[in-house]
Design a binder for these strands. Sequence first.
DNA 1: TGTTCCAATATCCTATAGGAAAGATTCAAT
DNA 2: ATTGAATCTTTCCTATAGGATATTGGAACA
Lengths: 241, 241
Amino acid sequence: MSETVYPLAGAAALERKGLRDRVYDLILDMLMTADIAPGARLSIDALARDLRVSPTPVREALVQLERTGLVVREALKGYRVAPPLADEQLEALFDARLVLECGAAELAARNAATLVPLLEHAVDEHRAIGERVRATAHEHGGTWPVELLREYFLIDWNFHHLIFEGTGNPFLLDMSEAISTRVHRMRQTVRSGLSDADEAVAEHAAILDALRSEGPEAAAAAMRDHIEKVRIRSRADVASP
Amino acid sequence: MSETVYPLAGAAALERKGLRDRVYDLILDMLMTADIAPGARLSIDALARDLRVSPTPVREALVQLERTGLVVREALKGYRVAPPLADEQLEALFDARLVLECGAAELAARNAATLVPLLEHAVDEHRAIGERVRATAHEHGGTWPVELLREYFLIDWNFHHLIFEGTGNPFLLDMSEAISTRVHRMRQTVRSGLSDADEAVAEHAAILDALRSEGPEAAAAAMRDHIEKVRIRSRADVASP
DNA sequence: TGTTCCAATATCCTATAGGAAAGATTCAAT
DNA sequence: ATTGAATCTTTCCTATAGGATATTGGAACA
């Protein structure tokens, strides 16, 4: 999809986007941020009224969202918010991440030269917002503002996204989108990923080191280690609500 | 998507499908079989007239097709048949297949017991149609009927599809669809995959053996060997038109 | 002759209206 | 009181119409 595979050359800014794409972004944002009950109905007409557009672009956006897994459709019955990932599906999601992201890390090692600086910046950002999260925890005592959560998750995932971009492989990049939406949704249900910011930063740094000074296999191994540890931490968070 | 992950339990038969899904199938079939020039415009209104439906379901089907990579869309300009895969993209496609299918083979080894019989059947079918292809080659002397081509490719890919199903991982299965459409489209441009039927069958059998008697790593290695060899053969066919 | 501007056509994009199916509510009967 | 059916409402699904935009053709001018 994206024409510019490599860095974040922001050519996407002025590329013309139809109403359909804007509606898609709006609904996606709504699903990501707002707490919408899984299984809740997404009425086409109601959405069209709320967004002040006709049902047609809403309908197209929902078709697009259906393929991300955030929305499920039953013919002649309408769209619903996808149910939360069951434990079994959560394990499957991590399996898929292992397959995809380890392979991506291995391939991205070819372009380590251009990729390493970008990843260094990403890790720095990650470390910085980790500090902010810890400071804010002291203030509010356990609960974080939604905006901070949102920003943290974005920066965290950006590291993984950069690796996908670093492969220069448009097919893998497309598939990463399917993963990313599910991961973000998982993080809504599994209230995690903040208490372990330090560990996540350290593991990302390990992947970066492997890309910088070691080979593709080492990068893949570091990625595998990271994802497996995230899996363990997520399991713990599921067990103890 | 598919509710029944495992074998070909045809529950999809009587599950209600809206008009959108039928239009999707029709256009997909059209793109797969008919020789449509890459870059040709896919007019929404024209398709709606031809299929005797309104533009709305056509529009939805095209949104769905866009995510398969068979169709590209430019906002406010319409849909076009996706251009043929350039050499660079072809290499990227094989890289993605390596990542995905080797990982899938490794995961599918968990369910080898239930998977092996299905794969045996698939290899038998593959071998049989390989024989038919060779016989038909003697008759017609070089050119094959379209229907035979279609059937061969379907059976060939079925082996790979079964492995994806064997993982029991819905995410990997979804991604396999993105790959399969591209592979089928590649085979339209790269006139190959028939002369090397014997080799393909042998390599599939090797994967099957690894799943039956060896471990997950062996299965992944056999899959890697197969895809790499397909890559080599495809390169040769691209070089010599 | 090549270039530029303009107009006409075709197409996409959006909006509105009507038919059909599924779900909810109410009422009646056992 | 509970079950059943019938009706009503809501929603999806499809069809048609109008405004906006890009492309194409031709004509005028340098």
